[in-house]
Design a protein around this nucleic acid. Structure first.
Length: 243
DNA sequence: TCATTAACTGAGG
DNA sequence: CCTCAGTTAATGA
């Protein structure tokens, strides 16, 4: 994938969450980006490492996670094309968590130096990246509530709907279905339950005629029941900059 | 390798 | 007694 297409993915997403001016688009288009391919389940930046680049997802799915002493991994967030999952490393240089691919992925790397300079000469773009980071924090708050308080079926449904609403912004929802290319093991690490239990929960919601999860794809069977189960309020994603 | 299911266990309401 | 969820193990795709 050419790096132009990668920049386009970023611009496209920023355009939706924060009205972006043409001159700012040109600034982003001028950023040097080096592109690399990664296999599935590969660390991009590890906990404790000093980051010198930010990583823009061009294609594929990534996750941020932390691993505890026993070896168990908690997935903290899922990331889709057009996002910069480690934007925080621009100011917090030493990583406090891992960033890994979930699927094979194409990633673009932007030097901290270049992003810093961009921030300094263009406050509008700096504000946009700041806004992005605040939304990231809002998603973490919702994630804590989800994993800490909701019953497992609601937890699953909530993560699914959040992913769907984010995929919708980049035009990757196809009618009543969308990609969620995670194994049941990875879903378990996302929800804080075992993969065996993930399987039971998936079976349950399928039998209840709510949602189907098959080979990395979610298909909604009953939108009303799905929303009700998930207890989902789209507000925390702050998708519309004007409201 | 990943998904599925059963059987058993225990916590907690 | 019921629901939820972890463990273990067997089996299938």
């Amino acid at each position: 994938m050419p790096s132009d297409a990668i920049r386009a993915a970023l611009v496209e997403r920023l355009r939706i969450s924060s009205a972006i001016a043409d001159k700012d688009v040109r600034e982003i288009e001028a950023l040097p980006i080096s592109v690399r391919q990664f296999p599935a389940e590969t660390a991009v930046v590890r906990d404790g490492e000093r980051a010198t680049n930010c990583c823009l997802i061009a294609d594929g799915f990534c996750a941020r996670s932390k691993t505890i002493a026993s070896g168990k991994r908690q997935i903290l967030s899922l990331h889709i094309p057009g996002e910069i999952p480690d934007l925080m490393s621009l100011f917090l240089h030493v990583m406090d968590h891992d960033l890994s691919t979930l699927t094979p992925a194409t990633l673009g790397f932007i030097k901290h130096d270049d992003l810093q300079k961009l921030h300094r000469r263009n406050p509008d773009l700096a504000e946009m990246f700041w806004r992005d980071t605040l939304i990231d924090a809002a998603m973490f708050r919702e994630w804590i509530v989800n994993v800490g308080q909701r019953p497992a079926p609601a937890r699953l449904a909530h993560v699914m709907i959040e992913l769907r609403e984010r995929l919708r912004l980049i035009g990757r929802v196809d009618g009543d279905s969308f990609e969620m290319p995670l194994t049941q093991e990875q879903v378990g690490e996302t929800l804080g339950i075992t993969s065996v239990h993930v399987n039971r929960v998936i079976k349950q919601v399928r039998q209840d005629g709510i949602v189907e999860f098959n080979r990395g794809r979610v298909t909604v069977l009953d939108e009303r029941k799905f929303q009700e189960l998930a207890d989902f309020d789209v507000r925390y994603l702050h998708q519309s900059p004007t409201l």
